[in-house]
Design a protein around this nucleic acid. Structure first.
Lengths: 336, 336
DNA sequence: ACCAGAAATGTTATCGATAACATCCGCTTT
DNA sequence: AAAGCGGATGTTATCGATAACATTTCTGGT
């Protein structure tokens, strides 16, 4: 009757199987020195009782849990949200739970607080989605003995990091527009303190310089359709603007509307290229040419790096760069 | 020197403060029977050592952690993603970490697996974002002694639940279109096994019936712009269609494009109302009239219910319904 | 000044796992 | 046949907190 009162513990399994609890532990951890027959007996007992190990107890004694802590800025932006979702899925497949600690701002003290909360939980590893420089500064808060991987952080930090090749994506977008016959390409960037933005600006500028094209003044905005619209209202007034590369698809959406309102046809008068390939980009008016980021690949690569560090903490300092892919649609066709 | 070797534990604090570890525990848990002076001494010792309690140890002895488990379908859909983000923020403010366990499908066995993983972690409570009926079935898997709140689930289940009033939102949208002078309103719904979809369909139909308007055949789709486009291609061919209410904004986007391609002007020929009010809805062509859901309110309400149950498990069975809000823009103005 | 009862603090047991060490057993080796 | 060895298993200590109970120290009332 008191069998029901609480979930079974290792000793209950041991008693039923007629072994010591340590042997049960060995079976659970695939220790080699267990006789096959004993192993099966224990397995049977586990199944019969519906035993499930208590992670808290394990975490207490090993000092590490089956939990991966993620530090991210609280946002519903497509990139970060997708990244989180993909990472969570990858971690689940590997048997890890994911504890999300989001912060309103990526400043040092907020990050420090979230990291501390994660360390209290004795997380097995940390993933920091660090899209601004301020986040990188906070890495000082993270002790050296806990595995960490940065997603989207500062490539020059030397820390293990996975990121999409923003420069290459921007180059592909810009080059595509030049190849279509435009004299130059205007760029509406994201917030300049984001690494993503910086990489895209760099790729855009480099491509123009190499092609000997004029580099127009940089316009920057946040990531919203709203700012895209505001910026688009200006660009629409300038007849010399025939090609625009925007730092994400939502900005592009706002720009498309501003162009539309001013009677400038896309792509006849102005060609537009976005970044991200949000699922609805193919249904903008007109369908958006954009750069797709393989968030799933990034997430899986980050997990792989993290698992590597868990096995051997000194295996750090690997950096993985995932290539993006240009998706050509009507807003910027191959040839006008 | 071995001070550095491991993070300080309660006994270290106790020694420094000259009290027993139990007194430290009392200070930490705001037990009333501690002299003010002792309390301060302990606090000082805590600060000096940078002591932070080990959650695993606490979870082991209390059988419950400072972790809230969320079960959600893996998706980047605006609604679920926003909900998760908002809930995480609310939980963090209340001192809880959130462990996300996402599933590919909301079928019984997947949910059961995720719930088990959460229970292994000895979560303090569970939140199930249960937007389809199949998820509700799986509630049988959840033992009765762990606090649970459903978001978006089956209102008739009797379980504690927080949801947006989908019926009211759909009524507002439909009535708005009727008031603008349309004879009837067509509806493109989401997947019919979602509660959201069902509520919106119900509100739409009721409003038409009460107004004595004809009820057109129901069109259903998934939530994507792609399906919206496909459906829109049909609707655009039917001259009698002058008003469309879609189950979310992305569907509306696809429909807007299909209408545009066929030369049907919005709102002159056809008025369109969406649902969600995604941030970029104001920048569609034309800006979208839609129904805004207060996800933040839902998330906070869910947390409140959960905390209530943690204090007193029998306090269950509260249901909270959050009203939505019609946002009128150009795709369906007040009067044509 | 004394005693009861409450307030403040201390002691010991406990949660459920792994770590470290001890033991037992059967085999090979000499 | 004794010694040595390694595989299989058991025993005991341990992680760091809270729970339960024990003890000491204040109070206030007479």
């Amino acid at each position: 009757m008191d069998k029901i009162s609480r979930s079974p513990a290792m000793t209950d399994v041991a008693r039923l199987a007629g072994v010591s609890h340590q042997t049960v532990s060995r079976v659970l951890n695939d220790h080699p020195n267990v006789k096959e027959q004993t192993r099966m007996r224990v397995r049977a007992a586990i199944a019969e009782l519906g035993y499930r190990p208590n992670r808290a107890a394990r975490a207490l004694v090993t000092g590490r849990s089956q939990l991966i802590g993620v530090v991210a800025r609280n946002s519903t932006l497509f990139g970060p949200a997708t990244m989180l979702s993909e990472f969570e899925q990858a971690a689940a497949d590997a048997g890890f739970a994911v504890s999300v600690g989001s912060v309103r701002e990526l400043d040092r003290s907020s990050i420090s607080a979230v990291v501390d909360r994660h360390l209290d939980q004795r997380v097995a590893g940390l993933v920091v989605i660090a899209n601004t420089a301020s986040a990188t500064e906070a890495l000082a808060e993270i002790p050296g003995d806990v595995p960490v991987v940065f997603i989207d952080g500062d490539p020059s930090s030397g820390r293990p990091l996975v990121t999409v090749d923003q420069v290459a994506g921007a180059r592909a977008a810009t080059q595509h527009l030049l190849d279509a016959g435009h004299e130059t390409v205007w760029h509406v960037s994201g917030p300049t303190d984001w690494f993503d933005s910086a990489g895209r600006i760099q790729g855009w500028k480099q491509t123009l310089l190499e092609a000997g094209a004029e580099v127009p003044p940089l316009l920057s905005a946040d990531w919203s359709a709203s700012e895209g619209y505001r910026t688009g209202q200006m660009l629409a007034r300038m007849p010399e603007v025939t090609a625009i590369f925007t730092a994400n698809d939502h900005l592009a959406l706002g720009i498309l509307r501003a162009l539309h309102e001013r009677g400038r046809r896309v792509p006849h008068d102005v060609a537009v290229v976005g970044f991200d390939d949000v699922p609805e980009a193919a249904y903008f008016i007109p369908p958006l040419t954009t750069v797709r980021q393989a968030f799933g690949d990034v997430a899986r690569a980050a997990l792989t790096l993290l698992l590597g560090q868990m096995r051997d903490i000194s295996s750090a300092a690997n950096q993985i760069v995932v290539p993006p892919q240009l998706v050509i649609r009507e807003s910027a066709p191959r040839r006008l």
